[in-house]
Design a protein around this nucleic acid. Structure first.
Lengths: 212, 212
DNA sequence: TCTTTTGAACTGACTGGTCAGTGCAAAAGC
DNA sequence: GCTTTTGCACTGACCAGTCAGTTCAAAAGA
């Protein structure tokens, strides 16, 4: 007896899980994990509470798999941006710039997930801590990789600290993007990208008047 | 009962509130607001539950006043750093650099508060949202002020976007510092500061080898 | 005396998780 | 073709436990 597949080919169960992810991500982003009830998630997803527990062992497990799912998308997008730049003969700075844009596009598309991720990342003693650490490392490693390559090829100063610089770059994009979403949503992605590019390339200090 | 006399003329009540802040900040940083119970806060502070409600109208109010208290300290510290640099005849870049350091010192001293603040900042529809917005603006305004002065005096390019750049700088410091605390606590504050200074001053790209 | 704290009991609302039962589409049997 | 069986996916009422907030008499502190 094969598990039923919907006309689209994706299993019914998979579709339900997707609905639950989407419901959970916005609710948890707004209220936090503990303040969000399983009843709410089920209601927003349009399924019964029992369905949540049929698909996930617990509320925590649902959240963990949601984290894995979301950061997986980001990591893939960052890798793709870096590789595309490399293939196109761009410099490592170009790659970093492309990754900044990929990050902005991701945050623009999944703002709730980003909020939720930031809110949970530095917490300690939580059940999903180890999961979070793993997926975080996968994403940051992409940035660190490009920085390391850049140093090897003399594109970046060999005095930069790869880990700290990568973290700082991620933070730059993260906070700028979240502020953009929250306080100036009318700005275009290009605007935000331009501002961050400028910072990345050190075109802030110095009287540089016309680089436009 | 431990008769801790109140030194410096601080009222007994104020001392109790301080103990409650300290207890609440670590618990909420670790677990989040909703997952932290008033009983836990009281126990960690070493007071009775009734005392919490004698000093604060509710759990939410305790949290709001905690936010105000904490961000107030940060804002004061940032202002002090900027003014000290200005008085000492430093440039605006120097002021920004001093503020980065002040930010790092603050996060180093109150890591739990920082975690809690980051976790709550971009949430929507929360009771303390408006409080958070106000105190955030006070802090960011200090950075924006220095950027604006820098543009006026030709120290910074007039093409930079003040709001976005300020947010990006804050994010840079915030994320780098939290990563430092969480993943490389053995590093010195000077190390972290040096890495961020380099990024601020655009000494990352370019083969720049010796700025020792 | 007046303020502050204590500590335990209590309430009422809410929540994560459970479980016996339902619906249904494909497979099996005839 | 048609009936019966199978088992996945889902349902929703229910339960046992938890928590914010209240109350208050009594004690401690200043």
């Amino acid at each position: 007896m094969d598990s039923s597949t919907t006309p689209g080919g994706r299993s019914r169960r998979e579709a339900t899980r997707q609905k639950l992810y989407e419901a959970a991500v916005t609710l948890i982003a707004e209220q936090g994990f503990s303040a969000t009830t399983v009843d709410e998630i089920a209601e927003r997803a349009g399924v019964a509470k029992g369905t949540v527990y049929y698909n996930f062992a617990s509320k925590s497990v649902l959240f963990e798999e949601l984290l894995r799912h979301g950061v997986g998308l980001l990591t893939a997008s960052l890798r793709e941006a870096a590789e595309r730049t490399a293939r196109g003969g761009g410099t490592r700075v170009d790659a970093l710039d492309a990754m900044i844009r990929a990050g902005l596009v991701f945050i623009d598309r999944y703002p709730a997930f980003t909020q939720l991720y930031v809110a949970e990342l530095w917490r300690t003693n939580r059940a999903w801590q180890s999961t979070l650490l793993v997926v975080r490392q996968e994403a940051v490693a992409v940035v660190e990789g490009v920085l390391r390559e850049g140093i090897e090829h003399g594109e970046f100063s060999d005095e930069i600290d790869v880990q700290l610089t990568a973290a700082a770059l991620v933070g730059m994009v993260l906070v700028a993007a979240l502020d953009w979403q929250a306080f100036q949503p009318e700005r275009s992605l290009d605007d935000v990208h331009a501002a961050l590019s400028r910072l990345l390339q050190g075109r802030v200090s110095g009287t540089g008047r016309g680089t436009g």
